[in-house]
Amino acid sequence: MKINIILAGVGGQGILTIAKVFGQVAVKQNLFLKQAEVHGMSQRGGDVQSNLRISDKEIFSDLIPEGEADLIISVEPMESLRYLPLLAPDGWLITNAKPFVNIPNYPEIETVYNEVRKVKNHVIIDAQGIAKEIGNVLASNIVMLGAAAEKTCFSMEQLEVALHEIFISKGEKVVDLNVKALRAGNEAKSL
């Protein structure tokens, strides 16, 4: 098996938590993993991305080559489009609907959605709204993870176990919240 995932967002939105869950699953299965992150200047509100590669064979490049990303998971709609050259022809673009506007020239949101809809395989979900309903808007990352779950080679059960292992140090409540968020994201319909 081999999966290449681009995680996209804006510095400070916490895309690395999603990476951490996948990482936890991969490590348990003794798979190879490479995960390139962005640290430094761009973390200050700039566009950030993480290249996550998981495989049962040795992985060479830390960067995903153009046209080879199976998934783009973005916690911000415009950021999801920045990495389209990396998306494989049959790859999925899964994005949060809620824009993060910290620049004066952010495009019209409908224009952004229209561009997302031009991608053959796409999912737009209101992760913030769903997370809010569950009880904590901070879980919207995990809602995104849930929305992407079926497009990965990992089962919901594996992801739930990983969430448990990662969040148990913060208490059962936090684990439950995240599991709920994962399931809600998984069941969410694309807008």
Binding site: D47, G67, R82, L84, P89
Partner: peptide
């Protein structure tokens, strides 16, 4: 290889900024 996707023209840069 032929690149399938391109970055749409409407997508603007998001430079880092003071918090």
């Amino acid at each position: 290889k032929e690149v399938v996707g391109t970055v749409p023209e409407d997508i603007v840069g998001r430079p880092p900024a003071l918090c």
